[in-house]
Computed example of a mutant assay.
Amino acid sequence: MTNRLESVSARRLACARCGTEFTCDPSGACWCFEETVRLPLPSEGQESAFHDCLCRDCLHAFAATTAAR
């Protein structure tokens, strides 16, 4: 079976929270694969606060504020 992410190339993104540009590589070489911080996927019918990836700093900051609740 072919991993469909293998054919996806890296892309330049702007953080959905602060606008910082970074590279996202869904093939597994992305920095986020090394992170232990995870944000929950939105439930069905629930809109996500962010519509795309966050940079490393914003991911940590958002996870810290979410954990504090």
Rank of each mutant, 00 (worst) to 15 (best):
C32H: 04
A61Q: 14
T20A: 15
C24R: 07
R69D: 08
C55A: 14
L13R: 14
A67Y: 13
A10F: 01
E35A: 14
T65E: 13
V37G: 00
A16E: 13
D52K: 10
F50G: 08
A10R: 12
T65C: 02
A63D: 08
F50I: 06
L59H: 06
D57H: 08
L59Q: 10
R69T: 10
M1Y: 04
G19H: 02
L59T: 14
V8N: 05
A10T: 03
D57N: 10
W31H: 02
S27H: 01
S48D: 11
R11M: 12
S7Q: 12
F50E: 09
R69H: 07
F62M: 06
T20V: 12
E21Y: 07
L59F: 12
D52M: 06
A10P: 09
C15R: 08
S9D: 08
W31S: 12
W31C: 10
L39F: 00
A49K: 13
V8H: 06
T65S: 07
C55R: 10
D25F: 00
D25R: 05
L41N: 07
R11V: 06
M1Q: 05
A49V: 08
R69W: 01
A63Y: 10
V37E: 08
R38H: 04
L5D: 04
D25P: 08
T65W: 00
A67R: 15
L39I: 01
P26L: 00
T66P: 00
D52E: 09
E47P: 00
A29G: 14
E35S: 13
A67K: 15
R38A: 09
C15E: 03
P42W: 03
R11Q: 11
L13C: 14
L39E: 00
H60P: 01
C30D: 11
C32K: 03
E34F: 00
R69C: 07
C30W: 01
C53E: 06
L54Q: 09
C53V: 14
F62P: 02
A29V: 02
E35N: 06
R17L: 11
L13G: 05
P26M: 02
E6T: 04
R56A: 11
L59D: 06
V8D: 04
C18W: 07
A63T: 04
S48N: 13
C58E: 09
G45A: 01
L39N: 01
R38V: 07
P42M: 04
R38C: 03
E44R: 14
Q46C: 09
C24Y: 10
A49Q: 08
S9K: 15
R69L: 10
A14W: 04
T23V: 13
C15D: 06
E6A: 10
G28N: 01
C58V: 13
E44L: 14
L5Q: 07
R17A: 14
L5W: 05
L39Y: 01
A29E: 07
V8Q: 08
A14G: 13
F33D: 07
A64H: 08
T36M: 11
E21G: 10
A63L: 04
